[in-house]
């Protein structure tokens, strides 16, 4: 449709589309963490007693990565339905604005009054869409909060790993590298998800 979009609608489209791209980056990084965890497990196994404190940590990292991947997968489904909702809302808003235009232009027409019912109906379904959008945004924000929580936990674990690594003798360097990469990955996830949340929070109460 060759109809003009207002800026609010445009930025809503952009916000929703950006979630999908940020999340796919999160996915890549979460998979990296899970790889780092497997790597750490192998090293810790070889290090034996020297890396005793490290072994449960690797399991924990792995678990965290898995949960993050699952969470992001379900968030993606939400983001898709949010996109569909944005498209619908846009269509309904366009129709409502056009119908308003009709009522202005048809002043004095014999059957002008008959436009009131479609106008009221269009307004209602536009508002329903807007409400549904806000509800879905709120739920998405909650889920993103859960991912952030995971990322923060991963960073704490990475800090613990560094301490444990310092007792691992000749394995110190490789275990420290593992801790480093978990920390970096968690940092990236945190940043990406934060960007999603900022983009979306505009629409929570707007």
């Amino acid at each position: 449709m060759s109809l003009n979009m207002n800026n609010q609608t445009k930025s809503q489209f952009v916000a929703v589309a950006s979630i999908t791209s940020e999340l796919s980056a999160v996915m890549v990084v979460a998979k990296e963490i899970s790889l780092a965890a497997a790597n750490a497990k192998a090293i810790a196994f070889r290090a034996g007693d020297k890396a005793k404190g490290f072994q449960p940590i690797t399991d924990f990292i792995n678990e965290l990565a898995k949960e993050t991947i699952e969470l992001v997968t379900s968030i993606n489904v939400y983001a898709l339905s949010l996109y569909q909702l944005t498209v619908n809302e846009y269509r309904k808003t366009v129709a409502y604005n056009k119908f308003e235009q009709v009522t202005k232009m048809s002043e004095g027409a014999a059957y002008a009054q008959s436009m009131q019912a479609p106008l009221a109906h269009a307004q209602l379904s536009m508002q329903l869409c807007q409400r549904q959008f806000k509800r879905d945004v709120k739920q998405l924000l909650d889920q993103l909060e859960a991912v952030m929580h995971h990322a923060r936990a991963a960073r704490v674990i990475a800090a613990n790993s560094r301490i444990e690594a310092s007792q691992a003798g000749e394995y110190l360097q490789s275990l420290q590298a593992v801790a480093e990469s978990v920390d970096k990955a968690a940092h990236t996830i945190h940043d990406n998800v934060q960007r999603c949340r900022i983009a979306l929070s505009l629409y929570r109460n707007s």
């Binding site: 449709m1 060759s2 109809l3 056009k98 235009q101 009709v102 232009m105 048809s106 027409a109 014999a110 059957y111 002008a112 009054q113 008959s114 436009m115 019912a117 479609p118």
Partner: peptide, 20 residues
């Protein structure tokens, strides 16, 4: 007609027939 024409067209039709 085209979508640009919808509002003027609908408004014009309302001189001759109710929407329903």
């Amino acid at each position: 007609g085209g979508s640009e024409l919808f509002a003027p067209m609908m408004a014009a039709v309302l001189h001759h027939a109710p929407v329903e």
